[in-house]
Simulated assay, not measured.
Amino acid sequence: MQTASINICERIGHSQELSEFKRGTVIGCHLCNKSICEISLLLNISWSTVSGIITKWKQLGTTANQPRSDRGQRMLKCTVCRSRQLSAESIAKDLQTSCGLQISTTTVHRELHGMGFHG
């Protein structure tokens, strides 16, 4: 039963991220003056992914994935929306245990106030 749901997710487009080796191969092909279409066909990767890898490499000088800056804020908002009666201390402890985020109660207060939650 679980394998069927995994296969459905893969067909919908939820795929694994590319390995560092494969991203490096894309950059290597790009440095050898291969076109995006040629790289896409050669490595069996979509052309938009190839283009994104090359663009990131040109802008940042690396192909490594960068941390998402808003992930903690979105998790904080979801936690508060689920139960608005939680104290800042309990929210901070919940985020520390579930996600490993190190967050203080002062940060929770400040971020919630910035999101429009008061009280």
Rank of each mutant, 00 (worst) to 15 (best):
M1I: 11
M1G: 10
Q2H: 08
Q2S: 05
Q2N: 12
T3K: 15
T3E: 15
T3S: 15
N7I: 14
N7T: 11
C9V: 03
C9I: 06
E10M: 12
E10T: 08
E10Y: 15
R11S: 11
R11P: 00
I12Y: 07
G13W: 13
G13M: 07
G13Y: 14
H14C: 12
H14L: 15
S15E: 12
Q16E: 12
Q16V: 11
E17T: 11
L18S: 03
L18W: 06
K22V: 03
K22R: 14
R23T: 05
T25P: 00
T25F: 09
T25L: 14
T25C: 11
I27A: 00
I27G: 03
G28N: 12
G28S: 11
G28E: 03
C29G: 13
H30T: 04
C32Y: 09
C32W: 06
C32Q: 14
C32N: 15
N33M: 07
N33W: 06
K34N: 10
K34R: 15
K34T: 03
K34H: 14
S35F: 09
I36K: 13
I36Q: 09
C37H: 11
C37Y: 13
E38Q: 14
E38L: 00
I39N: 01
S40W: 10
S40Y: 10
L42W: 06
L43A: 07
L43E: 07
N44V: 10
N44K: 15
I45P: 01
S46C: 09
S46Y: 07
W47V: 00
W47C: 00
W47E: 07
T49V: 05
T49P: 00
V50R: 01
V50P: 01
S51G: 05
G52D: 15
G52C: 09
I53C: 02
I53Y: 03
I54M: 06
T55D: 14
T55A: 09
K56T: 05
K58R: 15
K58S: 07
K58D: 03
K58I: 08
Q59E: 15
G61S: 05
T62L: 01
T63Q: 02
T63S: 09
T63H: 02
Q66E: 12
P67N: 13
R68P: 03
R68Q: 07
S69M: 11
D70T: 12
R71T: 12
G72Y: 00
Q73S: 08
R74N: 12
R74I: 14
M75P: 00
M75G: 01
K77R: 14
K77M: 12
K77H: 10
V80I: 11
V80T: 04
V80F: 06
C81K: 14
R82V: 08
R84V: 11
Q85K: 13
Q85M: 09
L86K: 10
L86R: 10
S87T: 14
S90F: 04
A92N: 02
K93M: 13
K93P: 00
D94F: 05
L95E: 02
Q96C: 10
T97E: 10
S98E: 12
C99P: 00
C99A: 08
G100R: 02
G100K: 04
G100Y: 03
L101Y: 15
L101T: 07
Q102D: 11
Q102M: 04
I103T: 07
I103C: 04
S104H: 03
S104Y: 01
T105I: 06
T106D: 08
T107M: 05
T107E: 05
V108C: 03
H109W: 05
E111V: 13
E111H: 06
H113F: 14
G114S: 12
M115R: 03
M115E: 13
M115K: 03
F117M: 04
